[in-house]
Each structure stands twice: as C-alpha cells, then as structure tokens.
C-alpha cells in the first residue's frame, strides 16, 4: 500500500479543493500528476480511502460520488491536539520542539534575550 500514499494525499487534496463529492472520473481530471495515473488505480485508491473512513460514498445514477467525511482542518486540528497535548504526561510518541509557555513568562524572556543580543552586538 505504501506506493499509494502519495496518490491518497493527491486524491484527498482534489476532493477537498472541489468542496463537493466527486466521481472517480472527475477526481482523475483534477489530479495534475505526471504520468497521469490509470482510471483503475484511482478507483482502487478511492475505494481504499472510503474503507479507511476518509471518503463517504453515495450513489449517483450509475456511478458513485465520493466526498470528504471531514475537512482537512479537522484532521490537522486532531494532529495538533496530539502534538500540543498540554498535560505533562510525557508520551514518547512525539518529540515536540518546545511546549507552549504562559504569556508573562515569554515576555520576560524576550526582554532578557534582547538584552543579551545587544550585549553580544556591543562586544
């Protein structure tokens, strides 16, 4: 499945950009990929995304339309929730660069940093 990873992302991009459910043919038209993937490949990967819960599927005449179940922002917010988890339970799952700090503390440190930079410059 690994080789489908990029195609999955591209298909989701196309559906999100369209803002409405698309047929596989329409998805294919909106993929600006070189070489253009085969219809069957796109169909297969779209089905995989449907099975994974990324896309909903509704009947439209003789074909199906696939729509995003959640917005991209929803997913990003979910990831950020994991990455910024406020609680001090240090999970080893992610290594975050730095935790958020309270406003007062940050201001005080900005001041100290400016002084240090000024000292460095005057040397």
């Amino acid at each position: 499945m690994a080789q489908f990873g990029e195609l999955e992302a591209a298909i989701m991009d196309a559906v999100w950009a369209a803002g409405k459910p698309l047929r596989v043919r329409e998805v294919l038209e909106r993929l600006s990929r070189d070489p253009e993937p085969a219809y069957n490949t796109v169909h297969t990967v779209t089905e995989i995304l449907h099975r994974k819960g990324w896309l909903s599927k509704e009947k439209d005449g003789r074909a199906f339309r696939y729509g995003a179940t959640r917005s991209r922002e929803d997913y990003v917010a979910g990831l950020m929730g994991e990455a910024l988890a406020v609680a001090e339970n240090r999970t080893a799952t992610l290594a975050r660069f730095v935790q958020q700090m309270p406003h007062g503390e940050a201001e005080e440190l900005h001041r100290l940093l400016d002084q240090a930079v000024a000292r460095e410059a005057s040397k």
Binding site: L84, Q100, M101, A106, L109, L113
Partner: peptide, 12 residues
Amino acid sequence: LAVAGGSAPAVA
C-alpha cells in the same frame, strides 16, 4: 521563544 511564546493557550 518564537515557537513557544507565539500564542499562549491556558497552559498549566
């Protein structure tokens, strides 16, 4: 500082 102090939510 740039990453940590940007927008501070209620941090315990």
